[in-house]
Every structure is written in C-alpha cells, then in structure tokens.
Write a protein that binds this DNA or RNA. Structure first.
Lengths: 211, 211, 211, 211
DNA sequence: TATGAATGAGATTTCATTCAT
DNA sequence: TATGAATGAAATCTCATTCAT
C-alpha cells in the first residue's frame, strides 16, 4: 500500500500504452475494446492515456504503426542485403519469414486491417504504402532476378507476386479463426507451397531437387 | 439508404429481417451496426425484430447461417454431380467459383468471420462444420481422383488442399481492403494460379498446354 | 411501488422537458446545468431526453424559443390592438408590461442571453429577430404616433426607443443580481421613469398632471 | 491567442495571472474557461497558479476584485474632487464615464456578474459594497446638490438614482450581445438620455438650451 | 518556488433491450 | 402480432486538482 501513486515516466508512457492497447485491440477488435481496459492494462489512468493520444482512434492508429514498422524494416533489410540466388532466397529467408508471421502476435494486425480497414481509409493507405506495396515490390525483384539469370521461366508470378503471399495470408487467417480447434501445420504447408511454385517456374528440367 | 426495402408478404418476416441485417452488418461490421438501422431497412419496428431474434447476437448468427447455406449447397451440388476429369474440374467449375466469390456480396462473410469469429466460437464451429471442412474434403476428393487416375503426381496438395484456396481467400481480402484504391485483376491472378499448380502436379512431361 | 415505470406521453414530453430545463438553466446557467438534473426534474430518463433533443445545446435553444414566444406574442397583440393615445399607452399597457417582466420567471432569459449569447450566435440572432427588433419597432410606432398628433416633441426617443426600455432591463438585472439583499421598488422606479420621460417630451406646457 | 503574454518580473506573478485570467474569463465565461488556458496565457505552469490561488473559484473572485477596484477609485476621485455644478457634472464627467464604460474591457465584468453572481454571493456582496452602493450614493449627492441649489426640482431621481445609470447598463448589455450585428451609437444615445433627464428635472422654464 | 505528468470524478451521449399500448 | 416511447447501463472524453520531482 505504500506504492507511489504517481510515477513520472514521460519517456516510456507512449510505448507502455501502445503495448497495452495492442493486446486489447488484438483480443477484442477496435469497437469492443474499452479505453478503460487499455488504461488498466497499462497501469495508467484514463486521463493520462488521453494526454498522449487525443482519441481512441488515434491510439489505434499509433498501435498499427508501431507494430508494423519493425516488421517492414526487417523484411526490407533482408531483401536488400541478401546475395542469395532467387531460389535460395525463397527457400531460405522468405520461407522463414512466411513461417514466422502466422505465429507472431503481429498476425493480429491482419485481423484488425480486415475488420477496421474499410472504416479507416487513412490507415489502409498507410498500410499500403509502408507494407504491402513495399513487400510486393521486394518479391517482384527476387522473381525477376531469377528470370534474368535464366533459372526461372516467365510465369504468373511476374504479374502477381501476390501468389507467393497468399498462403501466408491464408495461414494467418486460419490461425486466427480455426487454429485452436483445427490445427494446421502451417510450416509444412508453406514448405509444400514453395516446392510447388518452384517446380512450376524453374527452367531446368532437372527437377529432382524440388520435391 | 435508410428507406425500407423489404415489405413483402408477412410470412417472410424473418427472411426480410436477415436480408436487411446482412446489408447492415456487411457495411458496418457487428458492433457498428445499429439494431435501429436494421429495423428501418427491413421496414419493421424494433419491437417486432426482437420478437423474432432475442438479441442482436442471435440475429447476427442467423445472418451468417442464412447466407452461407446457399453457397455451400451450390458448391456441394457442383462437386458431386460433376463427371469431369480432375484437371477439367479445376480449370472449369472450381476456377469459376474462385473467380465469382471475391466479387459477390458473400465475400463480406469472410470479413465478418475474421472480425467477429474469435468472439463467437459457436459461429466459427458452424462455419467449420458446414463450409470449411466440407469444402476441403471436396477438394481433396478431386485431387485424389487425379492422383488415382495417374494424371497428378503426389504433392503438397494431397496434405494441404488449402493451397488451392489460399489465392481465393487472398483475392477476397484484397477486394475488401485494397480493391478500391489498388485494383487487382483477381480473375487473371486465379487463372495464373491454377496454371502454376497444374504445371507443378501434372504427371505427363508434356507441359506445353499448361501455359 | 406499483407506479408504472413506463408512461407513454409522446405529446406532452417535449413541453415537460423544456419546462424542467427552463428551471434548471434558470438556476444554474447553461454550462453548470447537468442533463441528468434536467431529466430528473422532468421525471424522465436521460435517454428519453435525448430522443427529443439531439444535444444539450438544442435543448437550450428550444427552451429559449418556447419561453420567449408567448411574451412576444402578448406584447405584439397589445401594441397592435390598442387605440390609446401615445401617452396613455405608455402609462398604461407599456408600464404594466415593464413592471411585470422583472418579476416574471422570464427575466431569467435575459440572464441566459447575456451569459450565453456570445457563444450562441444563432440564438442571439433568433432573439434579435423575434424579440428585440420587433419590440423596438413597436415602441417607435407609439412614439411617432405621439409626435404625429402633436402631443410629443421630437426627442432622443425617436432615434433611441431603447431609452424607454433601459430601466426595464436595469430592473431585470437588479432583480437577478441584487434583489435578494438590496430590495428595489422597481414598480415605483418605472413609474418615475415614465413620468420623467413624459415631462421631457410632452409638448403642452401644462405639466401639472405629470407627477 | 495562446502565447504567453506576461513574463515580467517575478514579483508580479499574481497580477500577471489575474490579468491572463481576466482575458480568459472575459472571452469564455467562468465554466468554459480552462485553468490550463489561463496558465498558458500567463506563461506560468498550472502548479504555480495553484500556489497563488487555491481554486479556480478563488482565482475568479480575485479577478473581479482586481479589475473593479481601479474603476471604482477613479470614479470616486472624480466625484469628490469635482466642483462643477450638478448639471455640468452630469454633462461632463458623468457623461464621459457613461460613454467610456460600454467600450472598455471592463464591460465584461457586467457579463460575469450577471452570469455568475447568483452562484457567488460573496462576490455579489463585494461588488455591492465597493461599487454599486458607492456609485449610487455619489450620484445621489450630485442630484441633491442640484436640488439644494435650486437648479433641479424634486423628481424620481431623488429616490432612484439608478435611472441615471440604466442606459449605461443597457449600453453595456447591448454591446455584449448585439453590437457586432446591430450597431448602436451608444454615445449619442447617452447624450440624448442626459438631455431628456435634464429637461425633465431642471427648474428654470427656459428649456431652449436643453435640446 | 516551479513544473507538468498524472489522477479520477463526472459530464455528455449512445444504444441494446423492454414493455405499455 | 406490432409499435416505438422509454429505460439505464456503459462508453468516450474533459478538466480541476495533486504531487513527485
């Protein structure tokens, strides 16, 4: 009972609050999350929360931004610094990434985007600019590299790098909606996906290694 | 947008109400939909609505069930009655279905499931039992048929028929979240996907027809 | 305890609520009045209040309008139907009116206008259009009538009918602010005011009758 | 409008704060004024403000007192030191004063008194003791002086010196509520008022000069 | 003195649900 | 059946005041 009622920690507050808010939004979605609950989780009064974030919506946007940024940065760094062949990149870093995301808390962001995106156009725009378009162009680079050096043939992937991502998204959605009742080995599925894709687009007919 | 649209014979009141509710939930999601609005759209008083549906949640569940059933039935009929080869089925009815869904209003159900599913386990269970598991087993049948008759090799699809569906889901999500700002030719993408899949799993080395 | 919890009285509600609101606003002013309090006084739930008045501000405006209208109508009727001489009108109906207002509950409206007017320009405009400009022009008519028939000389009143009203306003303000501690016989004061005015503007030098 | 305006020597902190508070209260009234805003205007932290004034209400009272005192003093000095005849005083210093007040920022005090007075009895009492009663008795002195030396007749002004002030109050209220939309030449009106009053109470029948 | 981060009570407003009619 | 006026709990946001620094 002799805990200080006040703790001045101006620096850390925003991060503490967005962390708590992430949890809450992840559990309940935007509408069903109570500002009260976020404050309690952050160990902070409601009033203080409003000192840092003018509205619930602004808090929500801050959460999305905060948790997306690191992912994007990591991905970009990996793509740019890698000197692997196209196939090696897909089987290596890309597959790792694909396996990781559906298990990370960040998967929740997808749920939030799908659920709230239509009502928050600026958020969607932000997500597009910073995540989707950049991710897609990185994938396109990889694929084109493979085509250029003759290891990949021209294929639907050239126009639709999304096809590389769709099982990742599927894994995420599955893990959100069904995983608890109907487990799916997403790792295996994603491996199988890469195998199939490579079998379909690799140029040399020696496909023994691609099983 | 708030004129009563449904004012037919008395006998269909529940159907009129769920139709109105579908519209409303589709536009706004569960929380942001007002019971008042649903009643107005249905041309019915709030009191009457509560006579048929004890709570807002029950109404929501009825909506999901009502609109999923016809889709499922259509799919099942098609699968069962078809006598096409596996490849022909994938290139024909399945591709048609895949192209249709992301453009139909039913795509909204996916948004609702993702957004509200985690809070409505019985709804998720219903969806699983009636849609997902049945759809997946239908797809498995097709694939195994191809394997059995020697046209497909054993592949990841045998364990993960989901891989056939993931671009469909992706198309749906894209159309919900980004389509208005960043058009994606989902038809072409889905065609490309089937092409790639078939190229990867078809047994005969003559792959000229699969471009 | 067997009072009905519900009383359907759609017709009377708005009037009941504005009456309660008038009391509350009169006692406390706009900001310090709690919507809760208004609802309690009206014997009504807060929710119902919001069914009839979309915001607190709209309620406030309704109050002002409701309570001003009757006064204005009464005044206008009196002025227009009267066939008295100018002097007789000032000593009769006008003086009566002047004496009545500072004692009526309506005096509170003046307080509200002064306090809230600057923040509610449309309210001020309404008050101007419906009360002040009409009142002033009625007074001008009276005065000009007196000038025309030769009983009044030209005077400051012709340009500033406000001078007839200023002691009325003063009485109102006094009664709001000081009356309880420092009684002022506003009736006598107003009589004295009319006497002085008439002595100043009457043309015939026979001033014996003027107090 | 929210830059610190007062940042002078430390010694005057209370004065700086009340000056800032006067501005704020004048603009917004008591309730709508934020302590935060006052502190910002004064270029001072909220904490310091609370060091000098224990509550918002106390600050408010200090403001009223501070800004009334100088006005009262000025008026008193003028009245007492004047050796003019009664008429000359009314046409000179009094008329000047009457013209000045409705244009000065001090007019706002009237608004505040009317709006907040009923809830702050001690404030009203202070105002009475220091302003109203003294002002009225000063006016009474003038009038009686005129009566004593035979230039004025006995009139309602003897009992109600308020009648001299009522157009001043009216001008103030008008300028607060309507001036911006419906200009009134208060100077002319006040001159007309003095003319009429003098015409009514001056004893000599030669009234030619009083037009 | 001086600061401003932090509190918490309380205000307005919304809306699922009920029930007299 | 059918209505929609009425309820009341709860949610977001504000702001005077406190207190660790």
């Amino acid at each position: 009972m002799n805990e200080p009622r006040y703790r001045r920690r101006k620096e850390d507050r925003p991060a503490e609050i967005t962390a708590a808010a992430f949890e809450a939004f992840a559990e309940n979605g935007y509408d069903a999350t109570r500002v009260d609950d976020v404050a309690r989780r952050a160990g902070v009064s409601k009033g203080l929360l409003y000192l840092y974030f003018k509205t619930k919506e602004e808090l929500f946007k801050a959460v999305i931004r905060n948790f997306i940024m690191p992912m994007v940065d990591a991905l970009k760094t990996e793509v740019e610094s890698s000197e692997l062949s196209a196939e090696a990149f897909l089987r290596g870093p890309f597959l790792d990434f694909a396996k990781r995301v559906p298990k990370s808390p960040a998967k929740i962001l997808v749920r939030l985007l799908i659920a709230e995106g239509p009502k928050h156009p600026d958020l969607t725009a932000f997500y597009w600019d910073n995540v989707v378009s950049q991710g897609l162009s990185a994938l396109s680079q990889i694929i084109e590299k493979g085509v250029r050096d003759g290891s990949f043939r021209q294929s639907a992937l050239n126009d639709f790098p999304q096809l590389l991502l769709s099982p990742v998204m599927f894994s995420i959605v599955w893990s959100i909606v069904f995983q608890s009742k109907h487990a799916l080995d997403t790792d295996k599925m994603l491996e199988g996906h890469i195998d199939m894709i490579l079998r379909a687009i690799k140029r040399n007919d020696d496909q023994t290694g691609a099983a």
